[in-house]
């Protein structure tokens, strides 16, 4: 079923293909960034939030990437466990720090949006709380990776952790939402990205995805070469 994938899963083939794609992807990322910034700063102020919608343009994509990158990590971990392929190992490992940064950015920008809108830097509402837990899941995964010396073993063990986390995330989301309704009666105002704000947001979202793909590919390529370097040094 995945034959087509494995033709590119050969590290040498992967290096060739990704090397050819990356300049185009970087250019596309730069172009979307410029467009998104232009559209965002040209957007009219919202009648409720004023110009703080500008924060939402970068907050919401970061929050979406926080979960999307974890999904990428889980898929790579599955391949790592089932097919025991080195490319999958490296892909899962390099995705984690990127996901952690996106999650951190979602938390910081969310807090900077919340201060003028809610009057406090932090609110224990469902979405903020699950994002915080998600951040800790990334940290645990990264810590475990760095603690295990043998790379292949670390890949398999961390893959198990990523999968356990994936099973648990929906439960955490459910429990956090349940807990949030338990503790606050009034509903708080949440960001709204409709009408004239939809297009700038979507372009910025596209930029975040392109940036992630570029960074992910670059990191995978770096780790593959580092591995080759180590084997060369070992042989010499």
């Amino acid at each position: 079923m995945f034959d087509w994938l494995f033709r590119y899963a050969n590290p040498a083939r992967f290096m060739g293909l990704s090397g050819a794609l990356l300049p185009w992807l970087w250019s596309a990322a730069l172009l979307t960034l410029a467009t998104a910034l232009y559209l965002g700063f040209s957007a009219p102020p919202d009648y409720q939030q004023g110009r703080t919608v500008l924060i939402l343009f970068i907050h919401v994509p970061a929050a979406i990437m926080a979960t999307n990158v974890y999904a990428c990590m889980v898929v790579a971990s599955l391949f790592s466990l089932i097919n025991r392929h080195i490319l999958a190992d490296v892909a899962a490992r390099t995705a984690a720090p990127l996901g952690a940064i996106f999650t951190l950015l979602a938390l910081i920008t969310g807090s900077l949006w919340g201060k003028p809108m809610w009057g406090t830097w932090w609110v224990w509402d469902g979405r903020l709380t699950s994002t915080l837990v998600q951040f800790f899941l990334y940290l645990g995964y990264i810590a475990l990776w760095n603690a295990i010396e043998d790379e292949t073993r670390a890949a398999r063990i961390c893959a198990v952790l990523a999968l356990v986390g994936a099973v648990n995330i929906p439960i955490i989301k459910f429990s956090v939402d349940w807990w949030a309704t338990l503790h606050q009666g009034e509903s708080i105002m949440s960001g709204n990205l409709a009408g004239p704000f939809l297009v700038p947001f979507l372009v910025m979202m596209l930029f975040y995805m392109l940036l992630f793909v570029c960074l992910w590919l670059t990191r995978i390529r770096t780790l593959i070469l580092e591995r080759r370097l180590r084997s060369l040094m070992g042989a010499a």
Partner: peptide
């Protein structure tokens, strides 16, 4: 709201830009 919007963009630019520069530097080094 400038006091909240500019820092949000600054932190994002700093972290994502830093990440990009770091990734490129590691790639060139290896």
């Amino acid at each position: 709201y400038g006091a909240f919007i500019w820092p949000a963009y600054a932190v994002s630019a700093l972290l994502l830009g830093g990440l990009t520069l770091w990734a490129m530097a590691r790639w060139r080094a290896v």
